[in-house]
């Protein structure tokens, strides 16, 4: 079985983003970029499935500008076999991303598509579900435990009420949650090796022929309203009397 992992290049999770003063976006110039953390977990899971013998090949794909090759190379250094960059010079929205990924899925015929449950930039949490829908295959979202054999996957999902387990017939789309695994660190020799692994570049236009893009317009970026400055108290008695004053206890 092949596994396709879809990743996204995003502002590193340690960076505290700032909204530009003119409200046109967030400042990303010179900011550290990384693989979306949830997608890194997806890569790791695919590699573990391959190492267990269930899958033969791990393909990693991304949609983005040319510099997203850096993130693909990192994925190759982690152990993915080959990479596909779907080049797009403008930001795209989830339905277009899912449509584009579908064309790769149709070509590669993977048994599993694994991707992060959401990207930490736009926090949309849509593309995996949309891909599963367009592909007409099952989805298991927010997965924190996964057992795969040749025909089915048993997935434990982190849901509001606790842990839900479902079984899906393959092929299927899996979206990863944080506790699925801890991604491995990349070793230097692997970075060197990754430079020689295949990385194909295709144009987004070749993957979305006939797609009617119903884009949403982002009109304004704002900083969130800060909370009013609080007070520090010196003792439990002061805390209790303040809570009582506010009628909270």
């Amino acid at each position: 079985m092949k596994i396709l992992v879809a990743i996204k290049r995003v502002v590193d999770f340690n960076v505290r983003v700032q909204v530009k003063p003119d409200g046109s976006g967030v400042a990303t110039d010179g900011v550290k970029m990384s693989i979306n953390p949830f997608d890194e977990i997806a890569i790791e899971e695919a590699l573990r499935i391959k190492e267990s013998g269930v899958a033969k090949e791990v393909i990693v794909a991304t949609i983005g500008a040319n510099n997203a090759q850096q993130q693909l190379r990192t994925a190759l250094a982690m152990g993915a076999d080959r990479a596909i960059l779907v080049e797009s010079n403008s930001e795209i929205q989830p339905l277009k991303a899912a449509t584009s990924l579908l064309s790769i899925v149709e070509k590669e015929q993977p048994g599993l598509v694994i991707m992060g449950k959401q990207a930490i930039d736009d926090d949309n949490n849509q593309t995996p579900q949309m891909l599963a829908t367009l592909w007409k295959r099952p989805q298991a979202t927010f997965v924190s435990k996964l057992k795969v054999n040749d025909t089915t996957a048993m997935a434990t999902r982190e849901v509001d009420a606790g842990l839900e387990t479902i079984e899906v017939t393959l092929p299927a789309v899996i979206s990863t949650d944080l506790r699925l695994n801890e991604p491995r660190f990349v070793k230097l020799p692997d970075i060197m090796k990754a430079k020689r692994k295949p990385l194909d570049i295709i144009s987004i236009d070749d993957t979305v022929a006939g797609f009617d893009d119903k884009e949403l317009d982002v009109q304004l970026f704002e900083s969130p309203m800060p909370r009013e400055k609080g007070v520090m108290v010196e003792s439990v008695d002061d805390l209790v009397s303040m809570l009582k004053e506010k009628g909270l206890v």
């Binding site: 339905l95 926090d123 949490n125 579900q129 949309m130 989805q139 927010f142 119903k214």
Partner: peptide, 23 residues
């Protein structure tokens, strides 16, 4: 915007040919 809604709604959006406005 619960785990149930987040699981279901993007599928409906895709079937209707729309992007979803999340959260």
């Amino acid at each position: 915007s619960t785990t149930f809604g987040k699981d279901v709604m993007p599928c409906v959006a895709a079937l209707l040919g729309q992007n979803q406005i999340s959260d």
